[in-house]
């Protein structure tokens, strides 16, 4: 189980990182084209926006593995006993899975409908916008389910950010 969680976390952040790098490269190319050739690229804006969807929806799977989505921390905020928070956490995870399942089914239904709609600049199929939504929500379902089982079994959860020493995944 930890191996699955580990694979999801690493794979997700790898894809998200590549997407972020690709956004940088594409927009960098856009600036270069305009400054040096005077002509704009037709596809850069649309392609960068597409990478953004992969960055966010696939990247969020890592957050789900590590169970670090931004939330009010009941233990810190209201001094709620850990045991009650643990029970609440089980309920929260079930609700998250339900929400994610609805999103996954939605994306699954949308994909065939938009398969033959082209994006205006790149002419890529609009379905490319919904693959990350589908894959991301499925990964988040698996990750949340693993955390759910770990919580019931009281085994130690996946380390929030064991592989680096910066702890907050948030930025303003």
């Amino acid at each position: 189980m930890n191996a699955i969680a580990n694979t999801i976390a690493r794979g997700a952040i790898l894809v998200a990182g590549i997407a972020l790098f690709a956004i940088l490269a594409v927009i960098g190319a856009q600036i270069a084209a305009r400054v040096f050739t005077g002509n704009s690229l037709s596809w850069s804006d649309e392609l960068a926006r597409l990478f953004f969807l992969y960055l966010v929806f696939i990247g969020a799977a890592e957050t789900s593995v590590r169970h670090t989505h931004i939330a009010v921390d009941l233990k810190d905020t209201f001094r709620l006993p850990g045991e009650i928070d643990r029970l609440l956490d089980l309920g929260r995870m079930v609700l998250c899975i339900a929400v994610l399942a609805i999103i996954a089914v939605g994306a699954w239904k949308i994909i065939p409908v938009v398969e033959n709609m082209q994006r205006p600049a790149t002419r890529l199929s609009t379905a490319w916008m919904y693959y990350p939504v589908l894959v991301g929500s499925l990964l988040m379902i698996v990750a949340t389910a693993i955390n759910f089982i770990a919580c019931i079994a009281r085994t130690s959860p996946y380390p929030p950010f064991a592989d680096d020493n910066k702890d907050k995944s948030d930025s303003n």
Binding site: L55, V56, I70, S169
Partner: peptide
Amino acid sequence: IESIRLGARSTATIMLI
């Protein structure tokens, strides 16, 4: 690479919201 990783992680968490 470390910066990219941290940036991607923050972005995903915030932009999902």
